[in-house]
């Protein structure tokens, strides 16, 4: 493996690779077992260095946005995904790498909240999780459930649903105006896709580093 490729991989790992570098890493990794192994080791090492199997996704809302971008094939491929067995260390959820599409965000949130109505059936849920679009390779043959290295859309939606439920409970049972404000504003889509938003997220990611 060339030094240049290693650098590209390292940059990709830190979300600093440009489109060309990313493409090159993906192309090479798709035909080179050794490279894929190296990629995996770099992930483990990075997570180890960050002291924790738990590495934080930058923002929950970003996670939802990310889910919406899963149609972008290049981005999907940019994160080689290998199912690993339960018990293996958790990997960092993919950081924000895509574009924000406000309309799409609104659409997803609307689908989750309006169509779903809630997280659970007694809240008029009815298949919130089924709204998840399948975009990741599945391992249906596995004898035991697998834990994925990267969060899929359905994982994010499942968690998002629980967050909404928790905030509602919190508003019901505790807190003051501020808690209710969180509930009332939490699912509010951010109107226009703004560059400011993107810049803010970039900063947030940079701060995480």
């Amino acid at each position: 493996m060339s030094e240049q490729l290693r650098e590209s991989m390292s940059a990709a790992l830190d979300d600093e690779a440009d489109a060309f570098e990313l493409r090159r890493v993906i192309d090479e990794a798709s035909i080179d077992d050794e490279l894929r192994g190296e990629w995996h080791r770099m992930h483990l090492l990075r997570d180890f260095l960050r002291d924790g199997k738990m590495i934080y996704a930058p923002r929950l809302r970003d996670g939802v946005w990310e889910g919406l971008l899963s149609g972008d094939a290049e981005e999907e491929e940019a994160e080689p995904l290998q199912p690993i067995l339960v018990g293996a260390p958790a990997q960092r959820a993919r950081t924000w790498t895509g574009r924000i599409t406000g309309v799409a965000v609104a659409a997803l949130v609307a689908a989750m909240v309006v169509v779903g109505g809630g997280v659970f059936e007694d809240e008029g849920a009815g298949g919130v999780l089924d709204l998840a679009t399948e975009s990741r390779p599945q391992n249906l043959d596995s004898a035991i459930p697998v834990m994925y290295q990267e969060a899929r859309d359905e994982d994010r939606q499942r968690q998002y649903g629980f967050v909404i439920h928790h905030i509602q409970q919190r508003a019901m049972n505790q807190a003051g105006v501020s808690s209710f404000a969180k509930m009332a504003t939490f699912s509010q889509p951010s109107g226009e896709p703004s560059r400011q938003n993107e810049a803010a997220q970039r900063r947030a990611i940079d701060q995480d580093r």
């Binding site: 199997k53 738990m54 590495i55 934080y56 996704a57 930058p58 923002r59 929950l60 809302r61 970003d62 996670g63 199912p83 958790a90 990997q91 959820a93 599945q138 391992n139 249906l140 596995s142 459930p145 697998v146 834990m147 994925y148 290295q149 990267e150 969060a151 899929r152 359905e154 994982d155 994010r156 499942r158 968690q159 998002y160 629980f162 967050v163 928790h166 905030i167 969180k182 939490f186």
Partner: peptide, 16 residues
């Protein structure tokens, strides 16, 4: 049955 990912996210003070 289709498996799941471990994940952590944060929104303000709320961690999931």
């Amino acid at each position: 049955s289709r498996g799941a990912a471990s994940m952590v996210s944060q929104h303000g003070a709320t961690v999931a």
